[in-house]
Design a protein around this nucleic acid. Structure first.
Length: 291
DNA sequence: GGGCCCGCAGGG
DNA sequence: CCCTGCGGGCCC
C-alpha cells in the first residue's frame, strides 16, 4: 500500500510550516520517505527533497540551492565511498522533474548547515524548480550528481503556468552583467502535447536534445492568468521551441484558422489527434498579435 | 561529538 | 522479495 506521489502544494500545508520529525510528513504524501532525502523516481519525477546536512557538497543560497543526489554515501561517516550515478531512483527523478518542469517541495532540516535552516525539526521552504544538472568530483574525490534548484513558490501561488524571470543582478554585486534565467514549468497536459510531437516545434520542426532527453516547451495560445484568462487545455496548447514560444507570447506571429502563419512564413504543423479551438486562435490574433 | 543499530516505506 | 536511504534514539 504505497501512497501516491503528489506534485506541487499539498492541501493544508504551506510554506514556512514546521515539522518536528520526518514521520509527520508522510501521511499527506508531503514527503513519503522516512530516511531518504529524495522522494521520487525516474518514471514520475521527484516531488520533494529534504536538506539535512547529509551531503557535504550541498550549497544553500536561500532562493537557489545546489543539491547533491543520493548514493555512494556511508550512512555513519556521511562520507562518499563510491561514485554517484543518475540511475539512482531519486537522482533519476530529479532529472525528470527538470525535464518536465515539475515543482519540487524543499524542506530544510536542523542538521543542514545554513542560515535558512531551523534550530530544531524541519521547515517547508516552498516550491522550487530544477533548472540544471551535472556531475562533478566532490570533496570526497568521488563523482557526485548535483542539481540546481531555484525558488518558484510565488509562481505557484498565482496558479498561473507561465514564465517567471529571476534577476541575479542584485544578489551578486560583483557580477557586472546580469544573468536572466528563464524558468519553464509545465503541466502534465503540456507534457502530453510535447510527447505527441516528439518535442519537435510545431512551427520550425526543430527539437533540442539535452543530456537528459528531448526538450520543448508547452505554449499557450490564449495566455493563462489575468487579463487573458486562457485555459490550460490541449485546444489552447502548442509544442514549440523556446524561440517560437517567445515569439508567440510577444505577438511576433499568429495563426490563422487554416493553420497558416501570419507575421512569419510557414504553416503550423498539427497532429491529427490535436485540435485547436478557433476562439483561442482568434483571441491571439486580435489581442496579442495586432496589439 | 561519533558510532551503532533498528527503523519504515517505496522501488526494482 | 530484497535493497536502499539527508532518521532517530541510545549508548559511550
Amino acid at each position: 500500500m504505497s501512497r501516491p506521489i503528489i506534485f506541487g502544494e499539498i492541501k493544508g500545508i504551506q510554506e514556512g510550516d514546521f515539522f518536528e520529525g520526518r514521520k509527520e510528513m508522510m501521511p499527506t504524501s508531503f514527503h513519503r520517505k522516512w530516511a531518504a532525502g529524495i522522494d521520487g523516481n525516474g518514471k514520475e519525477g521527484t516531488a520533494a527533497i529534504v536538506l539535512s546536512g547529509g551531503y557535504e557538497d550541498d550549497k544553500d543560497l536561500g532562493d537557489e540551492i545546489i543539491y547533491t543526489g543520493a548514493g555512494g554515501n556511508d550512512p555513519n561517516s556521511k562520507q562518499q565511498i563510491e561514485d554517484q550515478t543518475w540511475s539512482n531512483t531519486g537522482n533519476a527523478g530529479l532529472l525528470r522533474s527538470m525535464n518536465e518542469g515539475l515543482p519540487v517541495r524543499v524542506i530544510r532540516g536542523s542538521k543542514h548547515k545554513s542560515e535558512y535552516s531551523p534550530k530544531t525539526g524541519y521547515l517547508y521552504a516552498g516550491i522550487f524548480s530544477v533548472v540544471d544538472s551535472w556531475q562533478k568530483v566532490g570533496k570526497s574525490g568521488f563523482k557526485i550528481c548535483q542539481v540546481r534548484l531555484v525558488y518558484s513558490g510565488l509562481h505557484e501561488k498565482r496558479k498561473a503556468i507561465e514564465d517567471i524571470e529571476l534577476d541575479y543582478e542584485n544578489r551578486e554585486k560583483k557580477r557586472i552583467s546580469s544573468t536572466v534565467l528563464r524558468i519553464f514549468r509545465d503541466t502534465k497536459l503540456a507534457h502530453d502535447i510535447k510527447k505527441l510531437y516528439n518535442y519537435e516545434c510545431q512551427v520550425c520542426g526543430t527539437t533540442i536534445i539535452t543530456k537528459s532527453g528531448r526538450y520543448a516547451e508547452g505554449a499557450h495560445i490564449k495566455p493563462l492568468g489575468k487579463p487573458h484568462n486562457g485555459n490550460d487545455n490541449t485546444d489552447n496548447l502548442l509544442c514549440l521551441c523556446p524561440n517560437h514560444h517567445v515569439m508567440l507570447d510577444k505577438g511576433v506571429f499568429s495563426i490563422e484558422n487554416d493553420n497558416s502563419l501570419i507575421g512569419i512564413d510557414g504553416i503550423l504543423k498539427l497532429h491529427e489527434k490535436h485540435k485547436l479551438a478557433i476562439t483561442n486562435l482568434v483571441y491571439h490574433k486580435e489581442s496579442i498579435y495586432k496589439s
